[in-house]
Design a protein around this nucleic acid. Structure first.
Ligand SMILES: [Mn+2]
Ligand SMILES: [Mn+2]
Ligand SMILES: [Zn+2]
Ligand SMILES: [Zn+2]
Lengths: 138, 138
DNA sequence: CAATAAATGCACTTCCATTGCACTAATTAT
DNA sequence: ATAATTAGTGCAATGGAAGTGCATTTATTG
């Protein structure tokens, strides 16, 4: 049993052929992917399967869903040992308005946000839109 | 000519009956509203008109659109003399997972975000999800 | 008053997320 | 090993919200 399979099992996800492929696909990408991206990469499989795979991955802490403001959900693998649910471990996301790519800036944690009296924070989403390194470089 | 009419004209928006009503509706609300909210409040008017009114308002600095992560666009009146476009004037938004309401926290400006070399920020969206003052109070 | 421009209403489209249900593959119990 | 059960997959359909084309009405201007 290879490494990916073992990892999925550790996360309580059965390592089916499709799941292994999707995992590897995401691992090799440096940017966040949309369901449609995966769909285009695996035309043999059905959209529903891919959709539910992402949900399963998300529920088991393998990927996190990213709302980058485009209206299209993106997904990216979680960092090794990341705790996305915990406020202290949330990082910021960057969406490039030129190439339309979204990246995790995992090094850039979301600062603590002060709220007015009576407000309780459960989750924070911080998205910066602009020009990415690749696009500004030329 | 009353105050609302004058204000709309100042913003280069023709003060039609519908626009005045929508403006007053939003002014009296303390929370951000969705197109559907306005639709329900003005069943006599058509969704398209309301939709385009919001766009017109937005283009002329009367309202700002809010992406609170629910997938449904919300709108709120801009503060007097606010400059939503400018990064320094961006405030944070709070979405209550209990009552599902979204509010502008206009006092809480978005802190400056450091980005890696090569990244250029054009816009920042910061949304905190949790329990609002009203809902935590009981 | 006529000509022009702006605003409105209706119908329709698009896009993505999501679900129900049938079918197949894998796991567990007998 | 075979049957029973559970999990995964595929197809078809639905739903919600944003957005557009065009005809009609209303307001503005010459
Ligand atoms: Mn991320
Ligand atoms: Mn606001
Ligand atoms: Zn880019
Ligand atoms: Zn609330």
């Amino acid at each position: 049993m290879n490494e990916v399979e073992k990892f999925l099992e550790d996360q309580k996800v059965r390592p089916t052929a499709m799941r292994i492929l999707i995992y590897k696909y995401m691992a090799q990408k440096k940017i966040a992917v949309a369901l449609t991206d995966i769909e285009n990469a695996f035309t043999k499989s059905d959209r529903t399967t891919l959709y539910r795979t992402l949900k399963t991955f998300e529920e088991n802490g393998i990927v996190h869903q990213i709302d980058d403001g485009t209206g299209i959900s993106k997904y990216a693998l979680c960092e090794n040992g990341c705790n996305c649910e915990i406020e202290q471990d949330l990082h910021l996301h960057f969406h490039c308005s030129n190439c339309n790519e979204t990246v995790c800036l995992t090094e850039h944690k979301i600062p603590h946000i002060n709220l007015p009296e009576g407000y309780l924070a459960e989750d924070v989403n911080l998205v910066v839109k602009g020009i990415c390194e690749k696009c500004s470089g030329q």
